[in-house]
């Protein structure tokens, strides 16, 4: 009973905060609203007895929203809270598509005869998950690791102001290097 009430309260908070992201004027408020929505979803996952995943969802999202807030300040040329303006396009199409998708998904969720539960959760779920990751499903995590590394490399290449290719050309053979200010030993 208490868990049911907590679930629906969190559900209301998650959806309302998610909608608030695209309603509020201030980018900082939008970021906070998204963080609240994520925390509510993380708590719902905790209610579903998945303590490890629920906790890392909350921790990850709070950190992510902190980074996002910095980006908002860096890149927003003006403060919409002080100078309100509409920064949307195709609003009617977007509303139509999202309502259609909701009806489709919710209809499917309510009409499909879901099978009954098979088995029960292990006693120490986090321990079991650790064994799974380092045992039978290690290949999955071994693939995810290189993907993460590739993401770091690609992110740095995209975001870096000047790389060695800007300095030394595509074949890295340009001498002297094309630097905004010449300098260094022997120049």
């Amino acid at each position: 009973m208490v868990i049911g009430i907590a679930f629906w309260v969190l559900a209301g908070v998650a959806v309302a905060a998610g909608a608030a992201v695209f309603v509020v004027d201030s980018m900082a408020r939008a970021t906070y609203a998204l963080a609240v929505s994520f925390i509510a979803v993380g708590l719902q996952i905790l209610l579903l007895q998945q303590s490890y995943l629920g906790l890392i969802t909350i921790l990850m999202m709070v950190m992510e929203m902190a980074v996002m807030a910095v980006y908002m300040v860096m890149f927003m040329g003006m403060n919409p809270a002080l100078m309100p303006m509409d920064m949307t396009h195709g609003k009617k199409t977007a509303i139509g598509a999202s309502v259609g998708v909701f009806v489709l998904l919710a209809g499917g969720a309510l009409l499909i005869p879901w099978p009954t539960r098979r088995g029960g959760p292990p006693e120490d779920l986090t321990h079991a998950l650790g064994l799974e990751i380092m045992g039978e499903k290690m290949l999955v995590m071994a693939v995810v690791g290189p993907v993460m590394v590739a993401t770091i490399v690609a992110g740095v290449v995209l975001a870096a102001h000047r790389t060695r290719y800007d300095r030394l050309g595509d074949d890295l053979r340009r001498r002297p290097a094309d630097d905004p200010q010449s300098g260094g030993v022997g120049r």
Binding site: A11, V15, F22, S37, Q44, S98, F102, L105, A106, A109
Partner: peptide, 10 residues
């Protein structure tokens, strides 16, 4: 699933 659908739609 209905809550997830609402979040997805938003």
């Amino acid at each position: 699933l209905v809550v997830a659908a609402a979040l997805f739609a938003v």
